[in-house]
């Protein structure tokens, strides 16, 4: 139970960063914290006490494996988050070239 709550606290830290920071790079860092906490939560659900990694071996009798399904899901999610991060960083580089800063208070041309 404490582990789930700590995971939720990590998610809240990421949310706090996204909502309050003024620097684009720091907003990306907060987003990646939220991603990390979600991965960890999914893997925590599938853990079984005393289990071994899900790789079949003939030598072990009566094996207890941990759940392989959340691991496969998280494996796809990690690579997708890498792709999304690369896109966001490319947009940040473009913004830096146009405005000369990463600060979102200066990038307010859309204000009416």
């Amino acid at each position: 139970m404490t582990l789930f709550i700590l995971c939720f606290v990590l998610f809240l830290v990421g949310l706090y960063g996204v909502l309050t920071r003024k620097n684009i790079i720091k907003i990306f860092i907060g987003l990646s914290f939220m991603e990390f906490s979600t991965f960890l939560f999914l893997v925590l659900i599938g853990y079984i006490e005393g289990g071994i990694a899900p790789i079949i071996s003939k030598n072990i009798t009566n094996p207890v494996y941990v759940d392989p399904l959340p691991q496969a899901m998280v494996l796809t999610a990690i690579v997708i988050s890498l792709a999304a991060n690369a896109m966001l960083l490319a947009i940040a580089v473009k913004i830096y070239k146009k405005y000369g800063t990463f600060d979102i208070r200066k990038i307010s041309n859309l204000k009416g």
Binding site: F39, V43, Y47, I52, V66
Partner: peptide, 24 residues
């Protein structure tokens, strides 16, 4: 948590993301 596949992927992906971010 007995997930070695995820550990290998995460350690390489984290390194590459850090390289891109520091280059930016």
């Amino acid at each position: 948590l007995k997930a070695p596949d995820l550990a290998i992927v995460q350690i390489v992906v984290e390194t590459i993301t850090l390289i891109i971010m520091i280059a930016v």
